[in-house]
Design a protein around this nucleic acid. Structure first.
Lengths: 244, 244
DNA sequence: GCGCAATGATATGTCAGACGTTTAATTGTC
DNA sequence: GACAATTAAACGTCTGACATATCATTGCGC
């Protein structure tokens, strides 16, 4: 962990990597206190600002937390699912926007993952999950709802669907896929008729999960995926028409 | 973006957040050069080390890259899938190890996601993907292979399966789930007989994909998931027996 | 006029030393 | 013995400086 080649560039990156590796391989257990910045500076034979830059890199990944005061310092952080959600959503959002991922590709991935959850959700859904899904479906059916609010409710519905699978790893994996797509979804203008259809499909999905009918849930999800793609293609076609 | 409350703590975190938000919302397009550290220090009315700590936080998330020299500086980075893979694997690994996720939960998530890919892979798999899968299956059948090498080949096989879906978003999402599980998988000792069975299932999956038979691929994946769980439970039972 | 080397400018990377602030442990007093 | 004041440790920030990398310009020779 104290290895440092004589390359006098990117020292803070090297130090961050050394500490990160120590955390990942378990040499530094959770809640372990790292040496103070001054001690680290001595150990690595660099200055304190350099050590601090390294620590900030780790803090950005939620690998450590810092406390001020007499018994303060840098502590190995127990990574919470909550923290990981945020990072994943940020990363996914940027990936989608910067790599010019088509709506179709993102949408396909999202529904493929959701359909993977459906059988588990059908088995394990609680009354709470069902209530959330029905409440969101009801909200979506109300007139006067902005497109943005409709999308937000849509996200909430699908999160409940995923959470119903009762597998935190799946919830974590899907948080990025579902929430990162919200900006793309917001570009769609939902007509009254399309909303009606979506709400009907949402209700059908809730029904299927309540009946623990995995196959029906999968079919309705597939229909929803197809319809979403159809809507998106309409938006894309409309834009191209405006251009031409 | 130049907002900074008078709270004189966590200045570098606040600055990092301001710049990050500007990047995410598109105010700072890809490859845009940020002002120099000295200019940023002036704008935010802080010192250069504080600005530098903020920039290091962003660099840790691959949101910016820095170049030295006269025309150097910090540039908004086009986030590559490759970069995102690494971050996701690190995060997923830590989540699994620190939150005491059971093998069963992680395994369930992994196979659920893989089965989501299977129908797409059946449609889009190329000769290249099939060749990779067959090569890995063949490697796994060779005697004298260490458990670790067997696991590594297993990961390669499943990556090929996922990549065959031809959806980079799915590949990205699954990189974490599959690779983060490798340390857990490495704890399993694979007997000759269990390896034989796994290789047979791998071959069956490759056959199904070659025949573009999504249903068969799904069934074999389900069987593989069940068998993996069975093996893992054996390991767990054995450990508890040793304790008792 | 043109090519190439020396020079300068700019910006990041690093260092040294200092001060302020927060927090907990210690000490001193009633 | 309980409470208040002091002390110490550590992070957070600042100032100023030097080192290094890289590009643009300049100047020289041909």
């Amino acid at each position: 962990m104290k290895i440092d080649p004589k390359n006098p560039a990117d020292l803070s990156a090297q130090i961050a990597k050394a500490i990160r590796d120590a955390i990942i391989c378990g040499d530094l257990p959770v809640d372990e206190r790292l040496p103070s910045e001054a001690e680290l500076a001595d150990q690595f034979e660099v200055s304190r600002p350099t050590v601090r830059e390294a620590l900030k890199r780790l803090a950005a990944q939620s690998l450590i937390r810092t406390q001020r005061g007499a018994t303060g310092g840098a502590f190995v952080n127990r990574l919470k699912f909550e923290d990981a959600y945020g990072q994943q959503i940020t990363t996914s959002t940027l990936l989608l926007s910067m790599n010019a991922i088509s709506f179709a590709t993102a949408c396909e991935a999202r529904y493929a993952l959701e359909r993977a959850c459906a059988p588990l959700s059908a088995t394990r859904r609680t009354a709470d999950h069902l209530a959330t899904m029905r409440a969101e479906a009801h909200r979506q059916s109300q007139p006067g709802l902005t497109d943005e609010a409709f999308c937000a409710s849509d996200v909430a519905f699908h999160r409940a669907l995923v959470d119903a699978a009762g597998n935190p790893v799946l919830s974590y994996q899907l948080a990025g896929a579902v929430e990162a797509m919200q900006p793309l979804m917001n570009m769609i203008t939902f007509s009254a008729r399309s909303r009606e259809k979506i709400v009907a499909l949402h209700s059908s999905i809730a029904d299927a999960l309540e009946a623990q009918d995995a196959q029906a849930a999968d079919q309705h999800l597939a229909a929803l995926a197809a319809y979403t793609q159809e809507l998106a293609q309409g938006v894309i076609a409309e834009r191209q028409a405006k251009r031409g």
